[in-house]
Write a protein that binds this DNA or RNA. Structure first.
Lengths: 202, 202, 202, 202
DNA sequence: TATGAATGAGTCTTCATTCAT
DNA sequence: CATGAATGAAGACTCATTCAT
């Protein structure tokens, strides 16, 4: 492993890109909370403490901002999920950790978000987002595939499992349910349990 | 002398309500496909073959149209689901039927939809929609509760099952998955299977 | 004085025209309170307990309704003013009575109202209203002319006096002033006093 | 190295404010001529040689535009009136000057205007306008109060005089009258005369 | 790098008006 | 006599976007 650090004094990216980053993060948060159309460039600007024109300085248009912001966020989440899945604990408890984190993060259904923004996005935009999104699914798929090989779980379509799992954990906002089950931890536990053993009688 | 006919144009039962109904149905379809903000009153009007002003003749404003349209649709769906669930077949195959119908119907995540429209809706609107929505959950809950009593399934929180089941069946739009698994029927079968036996090894 | 009553059973105007009258009066009240544009045909209809279409049954369009309604009201007011002015008391106390009634009636500046509605009214409409309006001025003018001949007041332009007087009594809405001066009666008294003796020192 | 120029396009003091000012002045003129509802934002924009969106760039909404425009105009008028009243001539001729200017300025009854716009304005808007308005009255009141102390006029309520005077000078639009009396100057003279000596016989 | 000014296109909503019944 | 249905036109307001500085 060689030292890959570029020689010389590194460019001062800090100040400059910090603005871009702030806008991106803020935007992602807003989009994932309120959807695409509901969030105006003005709101993004205000929430980022810059002017509208500044947002345009960094991002060509709203569709692009959306794409970049959401993709970045996905990458961040993917990293986190991979980390959690890498642990050496049994699959069940790794899934539990992922579920728990997911339940706590406030956000809306991703497919729906894309559907809503759909008409405003170009093919390229959609592809870019889809790619970032699939990374999460790929991570899950791999884990499931591996678990199947180890005989840790039943053999079936890993893709199906990945989708089903990520969809099930979408049960958020449903405060009613979470309250009745007694909090995030217990809800996460129940979900994974259900996912693990199904509903068939023993 | 005894002619007591009420003055004015009599309300047309059939024809008139058909317009209102047409608008409502069309609107529901659009909202469930594209979200709240993305659908303009103009679009609703055009798709309903009336003018924008006519839409306003029947519905006070967009928020109200949304509420009424979506609530009605929910009631229709609830009716259909109850019907399917009433059958005397085993629970598994009843769930299969419901899942299959659900997969075919094009629509977006309901919670997300509400979240997006949220800022435009009054408390009353939201309550009205929520009430219609819960009817489906109640129908499912009851079925599960009954099945538990019959020993047909394992004993657990019926509310959790209802939510989980209705969320899982949300795997639509995911054309990729449906294609890979080989069509709606097979996907539905796999989903119910998963829901039924879980992923734990036998 | 001969009996001018038409022979035979009089037409049943009661029920029929009572609706027209109600609409007219209601409309006049609304127009004089809120202006022309601010009052919608819908409001007029609702306040009159009929449907919008009914208003159109009696009045060709909004401009016509406005014209008829306001003219009628003016005629009613003129009648009342003439009655008050006919009394045998001195001019000063007759003016007081008129002022008092005027102060109590809630309404807006007539010229302003006409100016606002102006662009919607045809020449004919405007003429019709102006004529009704002038009757009040004529009544006042005549009184002043007579008073000048009697030496009851100084000799000057009766038209000016009529305008000035009717404008001065326009000090309504100015609740602040009326409160400070101690109610309608005192305000009316002060106004007539001012009009009578001016502000020059004795 | 010491270049501390603030980033971004610097605020243009002259040019920019000229646009805002132009819109405000134009709007005030239109509102005072045609009323609140009759004047559309479109009209204001056209008359100001900008687009509707530009009007909204400077003024949040119609109510705010109205408030700012009318208040500003009032302040300008107040300034002018105070100037005229400051002269060392006798009160009578100072009132004459004010009356004359007022007669020439085209506008509608202020109270009526407020009444008409009333339902669209917030409490704050109304307060803001009222405050600007009262400055004129205060100026007049002070002059009258002073004149009373000097024995230049009879002692009475200065507030009443201020209101009465400003109302009387409202006799404009009444082209008929002005024509009959022979022009603005003569009308102004007659009005002040009437206000000064009243109608009582000598 | 960052921003104030300006705008075209579109959205929701209201309103006067018509017409068949 | 009176009304429910339907509409064209217009109005307030928002928004993504551009541009000169």
């Amino acid at each position: 492993m060689t030292n890959k650090r570029t020689p010389g004094r590194p460019k001062v990216k800090t100040e400059m890109n910090i603005t871009r980053e702030r806008i991106s993060t803020t935007a992602a948060h807003l989009f994932l909370t309120y959807g695409y159309e509901s969030v105006s460039m003005q709101q993004v600007a205000e929430a980022s403490n810059v002017t509208k024109a500044s947002v345009y300085y960094y991002f060509k248009d709203k569709a692009t901002l959306f794409t970049k912001a959401v993709s970045s966020m996905f990458q961040r989440i993917t990293g986190r999920v991979e980390e959690l899945l890498q642990s050496t604990k049994g699959l069940e408890s790794r899934l539990y950790e992922v579920t728990l984190e997911h339940l706590k993060r406030p956000h809306i259904d991703f497919e729906t978000l894309l559907q809503e923004a759909g008409s405003s996005l170009s093919k390229d935009h959609i592809r870019e987002i889809r790619e970032s999104e699939q990374d999460i699914h790929k991570a899950l798929e791999n884990i499931f595939k591996q678990a199947m090989e180890n005989g840790e779980i039943v053999t079936t379509s890993p893709l199906l499992l990945a989708h089903a799992f990520s969809t099930v954990t979408m049960i958020r906002n449903k405060t009613e349910l979470i309250t009745e089950l007694g909090g995030y931890e217990k809800t996460a536990r129940s979900l994974v349990d259900l996912f693990w053993t199904g509903i068939a009688p023993k």
